[in-house]
Design a protein around this nucleic acid. Structure first.
Lengths: 132, 132
DNA sequence: CCTAAATCGGACTGGAAAGCTCCGATTAGA
DNA sequence: TCTAATCGGAGCTTTCCAGTCCGATTTAGG
């Protein structure tokens, strides 16, 4: 029950962005230098965060990314979900039924509820709190 | 943010044990047949669960495992923590400081709190609820 | 006392997913 | 129109997890 390195990096980068001016243009290079995250990795992460609507990208010279929403409306759950995928405690919660235990499993109906609880715990932490 | 297969298997096995009589002797073979978990994997999991005080092992002929506590006093958090290790969102929360971002990281102090929240969410679910 | 059954502990192999890097496509500014 | 800086996707290497096997230890029963 721990975050992947990519999700950890994403949280660090988003908090670094939250400390800047709102709507400021942030390039992947800028955040890479601020946080220490390797540049190619930072690029890949910002792509995913933009694809999930947490950042908006502006291309071309002078472009970069900007927070899509106010810092109070972006939660830890949003960031983790953008990088790691949906909060499913088990693979069978995602619709996949290729589980060898599926026939005898009596726990499956409860796992969706558990996932929601975990998501609620992370959803209660906003970027504003993380940035102090 | 998902459980490993081993933790998933452990939850299924513990719920299967919870449906038996309290204090019943359960061998790894029994639970393996009931749940469909491969026998060697079941053995390894029960070792870990016993090492963390969730099961008590009885060696020798007629031996087996039994739940160490009533089903209402064993939570999902206990099981996951026994198999996956402590609830640390990041490696730096466990005391390791070999993180390249450590110097600039301003999020580290908050991660311990986040881990506690997640643990609380899983700690609110007891074996009794999972077994219906 | 002896046999048999079952747990405990370790080390080893295979496989999947994460993590990192490089290269092409697109766009704004001069 | 040309240049420069960025977004976006594809590929590869590496690390960690999952599964398996073996031997050692212990206890109940005949």
């Amino acid at each position: 029950m721990r975050l992947t390195h990519l999700a950890d990096y994403a949280v660090v980068m988003m908090t670094a962005a939250a400390r800047r001016e709102p709507c400021a243009r942030l390039s992947a290079t800028d955040l890479s230098q601020d946080t220490g995250v390797p540049l190619p990795t930072a690029q890949k992460l910002m792509q995913r965060l933009a694809a999930h609507g947490l950042l908006v990208g502006h291309r071309g010279a002078g472009g970069g990314y900007a927070l899509a929403r106010p810092v109070g409306e972006i939660t830890l759950a949003d960031i983790v979900e953008a990088v790691e995928g949906p909060f499913a405690m088990t693979v069978c919660s995602e619709g996949r039924t290729d589980c060898a235990l599926d026939a005898h499993c009596r726990v499956k109906p409860h796992m969706g509820i558990v996932g929601d609880k975990v998501r609620g715990a992370l959803g209660a932490v906003s970027l504003q709190e993380l940035a102090q």
